[in-house]
Design a protein around this nucleic acid. Structure first.
Length: 914
DNA sequence: GCAAGGTC
């Protein structure tokens, strides 16, 4: 065996995956006497390659095998494995052990057998922290079989010849600190995950009627330091949308038609939220409507191809272009990789090494029926199409960007998704090595009465990479030719729009959030997203956008109401920071573990002490299951009256988990109308007696029983009361005894649990002197009346739909139904408006404008739409060709001041203007 | 039956 002078030593080499074992063996065995032989090990995937090699003049007989990722798992001792075997809090101290799971035993046996016959071991695991940890797992197994192994670590950053030969000649020692950092992560993840998962599953699963679950017993309400922040992103965006207050804005649109075509000029101010200001400027413009061209700028613009493809980009783009889930994308990419069509699909790297032979890869694609001719052009020096790819600045030092490794014009066994992913990888690769698209842009700026507007025209001169990257486009628009100093009279309109909430998170958005916050790795992000769907925490709609389920929202709300940010990415960020410290030796593994677990244990205990918050949040969305105590009235919620706020649902008598009573709307959480009852009530039941004075009826009276010691002596323990507003005794007892509403200032401040109810009850306790002036109900003051626009982040009650959400009129712009709503912005609180329900349309009009009450405003604004959707601009043509500023009755508004109505001047010079 | 991380 010896190729040199001395006796050859046997060296066991272990890679993280079979593909690396094969690739490195191929590189090292090249030109070696005897070449490379392959034999099977015990595990069918992990072959053993044999060849001769010389390391620093030492002849070696190399055996090269692999594992498949982690060889070991961390688990609690058997005594703690069963869910009911211990209190979940014990999991912070329970002994844990690392063991080789069943499905890895074959690999373990191969390693043991081979290690016995070797003198050296070289660890070729990936050069990241996880790889280092796997190295120590391999080492543990091998050392048990052979105590005398000489241990080495090969460090390599790419599977290219020079790199590999160099690394085997400059072997180092494995890095214990890197491995320690992973041990820390594993232990914290396990203890936190298992304790919180067991806790919240056992607490909530049987307590509520989880209508989506077919089998309650198998339902797991899991908690994890990655899955929960991922859910948090989804919920946070959902809340942002719910809390959005539409705000009306105004913009001046300017179009010019000439023989050469039409140009649309954008107002350089964008849009204004102040109507008076906008109309003032508009009036100035239409008074002197001549436009003067004061700038014509022509410039070349480049649109660059994307960076080489990393995993996250592949997932994002497949989601965007094909609506494929990240999970499916990775499944297909893995299959293409296994069959040799694309490179390793889990990579953070988005730059090619200078050594990569890019041209050969392009050459392989020359025969493709669709993009083959593009590949040919690319390689033709005459075309000038080639460009060395740019890099995005990421490099995991282990894998190159995802690129095609084998030509295929499509395989018969490929699914449509295989075709798509392969096509994306190839086209992306070809795009990366192509010149950017070139466009000629013309920017024309005009001045009208001191206001600036600009229009942009673009002609694409060379599509270059866009020829092959069909997923991207670059719109061109032709505008007429303008010259400096040219004057013309455009059409001006003052258009209104309304701000829209952001959209729900798409899969690409979600991946972006996770990437930014460091949640998960490129190889696991899609798993966390899938987990949200599997756990019924979130759903993905037909538009591939995510929204939380009731369960997902309730869990996040529960922890948020506790004041815990367990659903935010901070815990993970802190762990990442600690791991970094361990890996560079500034903190010790034991120290970080102890501190972190101590904190998390305290947090766990506190969360458990506050489990009522989780209950309350869950109770908002789900019915309690199997109520056996506390009176029958809860099981069959008794109707007290029709809800006067939403006009849709019934108000029912309920008893909260803490024993307090309330009358709440069944439309919760959409409708938050609630009447809190005195805290001294021990029993309550709805009777068939109807109140004769409260309206709208019927309002059924409630038979109350109060706790003697909690009410003043002059009040009776039994009371037949009415919550409709007529009952002085009830009102007085609310004042004296307070209500059963939550009164934690934290809850009030956060305001999502049941803010209207909480705040109303609190204030009612201290200063309620009479029933509410608006709805005549007790339990709150008019200032807190849920029928009025609410405050803070009380998302769903902000736009109280006075028309029961019924479509009220067809949209003037697109014909879709418009809803009548009530604004809650500072300037227009309580004012009603119609807004188009179509996501595509921004039509918006104040109701009083339609009614003619403010005809002046109405007709300068309400007849068109505009805004982000941009549709409004297109509507400028709907106006008369001349300047259109006419009221609904046809009366010209020009020449009359908007502020004071005086026909003698415009608003911009109105003496009443401050 | 829990986590997240490797990978098949």
């Amino acid at each position: 065996m010896a190729s040199g002078g001395g006796r050859a030593i046997r060296v066991l080499n272990v890679a993280e995956k079979p593909s690396v074992a094969k690739a490195v063996s191929g590189i090292l065995s090249k030109n070696q006497p005897g070449g490379m032989r392959v034999r099977d090990g015990r595990s069918r995937y992990n072959k053993i390659f044999e060849f001769n090699y010389t390391i620093r003049n030492q002849p070696c007989q190399m055996l090269f095998t692999s594992v498949t990722g982690h060889l070991m798992e961390l688990e609690f001792d058997d005594r703690y494995r069963k869910w009911h075997s211990c209190d979940p809090v014990d999991l912070y101290n329970a002994p844990v052990r690392k063991y080789v799971p069943e499905d890895k035993l074959d690999i373990k046996r191969t390693l043991e057998a081979e290690a016995r016959s070797c003198q050296w071991i070289i660890l070729w695991l990936d050069c990241d922290r996880e790889g280092e940890n796997i190295a120590f797992e391999v080492l543990e197994v091998c050392r048990q079989a052979n105590h005398n192994l000489n241990v080495w670590r090969a460090r390599f950053s790419a599977l290219i010849d020079r790199e590999i030969h160099q690394s085997v000649q400059t072997l180092v020692q494995p890095n214990q600190l890197f491995s320690d950092a992973v041990d820390v992560r594993q232990e914290i993840d396990l203890r936190i995950g298992a304790s919180f998962t067991r806790f919240q599953t056992m607490l909530l699963r049987s307590a509520f009627d989880l209508d989506f679950a077919t089998d309650d017993r198998n339902l797991v309400l899991s908690y994890g330091p990655c899955q929960f922040p991922t859910l948090g992103f989804v919920v946070e965006r959902y809340w942002e949308i719910q809390a959005h207050e539409p705000e009306e804005f105004w913009t001046i649109n300017c179009t010019h038609n000439s023989d050469e075509g039409t140009a649309t000029f954008n107002w350089m101010r964008g849009h204004l939220f102040d109507y008076t200001c906008a109309v003032t400027i508009y009036e100035m413009c239409i008074q002197e409507p001549t436009a003067t061209v004061n700038k014509v700028k022509q410039q070349e613009k480049l649109k660059y191809p994307p960076h080489p493809l990393s995993t996250i980009e592949l997932e994002k783009r497949a989601s965007r272009y094909f609506r494929m889930s990240s999970e499916q994308t990775m499944k297909v990419a893995e299959d293409l990789y296994q069959n040799g069509f694309i490179s390793y699909p889990r990579t953070e790297t988005d730059r090619f090494s200078e050594k990569t032979d890019l041209r050969t890869m392009v050459q392989e694609q020359e025969g493709h029926p669709v993009w083959g001719s593009y590949a040919q052009r690319l390689l033709d020096p005459q075309s000038g199409l080639w460009r060395n790819p740019s890099g995005g600045g990421h490099d995991d030092k282990a894998h190159p960007p995802i690129h095609p490794t084998k030509f295929s014009a499509g395989e018969s066994r490929w699914s449509q998704d295989h075709h798509r992913v392969y096509e994306l990888v190839v086209r992306h690769f070809l795009a990366c090595v192509s010149q950017p698209a070139v466009g000629a842009e013309t920017i024309v700026e005009i001045d009208i009465a001191g206001e600036s507007f600009s229009a942009c025209g673009r002609v694409i001169l060379a599509k270059n990479y866009l020829d092959v990257y069909r997923f991207e486009s670059w719109g061109g628009s032709v505008i007429p030719t303008y010259s400096f100093g040219q004057q013309f009279t455009p059409t001006l309109t003052l258009d209104s729009g309304v701000t829209r909430p952001p959209p729900l998170l798409s899969e690409a958005d979600l991946l972006g959030c996770m990437d930014k916050a460091g949640i998960g790795t490129d190889a696991t992000m899609h798993d966390h997203i899938k987990k949200l769907l599997d756990r019924y925490y979130a759903i993905k709609d037909s538009n591939t956008r995510f929204s939380p389920t009731k369960l997902g929202e309730a869990l996040v709300m529960g922890y948020d109401n506790m004041g815990y940010e367990l659903w935010k990415p901070y815990l993970r960020a802190m762990m990442e920071c600690d791991m970094k410290a361990v890996s560079i030796g500034t903190k010790r593994k034991a120290e970080v573990l102890e501190t972190c677990l101590q904190q998390m244990k305290a947090c766990f205990l506190d969360a458990r002490a506050n489990k009522g918050k989780l209950f309350e949040a869950m109770a908002i969305f789900f019915e309690r299951a199997n109520r056996s105590t506390g009176g029958e009235q809860q099981a069959v919620a008794a109707v007290v009256r029709k809800c006067g706020i939403c006009l849709e649902s019934d108000m029912v008598l309920r008893q909260k988990p803490d024993g307090n009573f309330m009358v709440g709307c069944l439309g919760y959480p959409q409708c938050r109308n609630v009447v809190w009852l005195p805290g001294s009530v021990s029993e309550a039941s709805v009777t068939e007696n109807m109140c004769t004075s409260c309206s709208p009826g019927p309002v059924f009276k409630i038979q109350f029983k109060f706790r003697r010691l909690e009410i003043p002596p002059n009040y009776s323990v039994q009371h037949l009361g009415c919550i409709g507003g007529c009952d002085d005794i009830l009102r007085q007892l609310v004042e004296i005894c307070g209500t059963g509403s939550r009164n934690s200032s934290n809850t009030l401040g956060r305001g999502r649990g049941n803010p209207t109810a909480s705040s109303s009850a609190q204030r009612g306790n201290s200063r309620a002197q009479s029933s509410c002036a608006h709805c005549r109900q007790t339990g709150h003051l008019s200032s807190d009346c849920p029928s009025q626009a609410s405050r803070g982040r009380t998302a769903r009650s902000q736009e109280v739909d006075l028309q029961n959400g019924e479509p009220s009129m067809p949209c003037n712009s697109c014909g879709a139904p418009c809803m009548l709503r009530t604004a809650n912005t500072a300037n227009n609180r309580g004012r009603k408006f119609f807004s188009c329900q179509s996501q595509e349309c921004n039509f918006f009009v104040w109701e009083d404008n339609l009614n003619g009450a403010r005809a002046e405003r109405a007709n300068t604004s309400a007849s068109t739409s505009s805004g982000r959707g941009g549709r409004g601009r297109g509507r400028a043509g709907a106006h008369p060709s001349s300047v259109s500023f006419v009221s609904a009755t046809g009366e010209p508004i020009s020449g009359r001041c908007f502020i004071c109505g005086d026909p003698g001047h415009f608003a911009n010079v109105c003496p009443r203007r401050g």
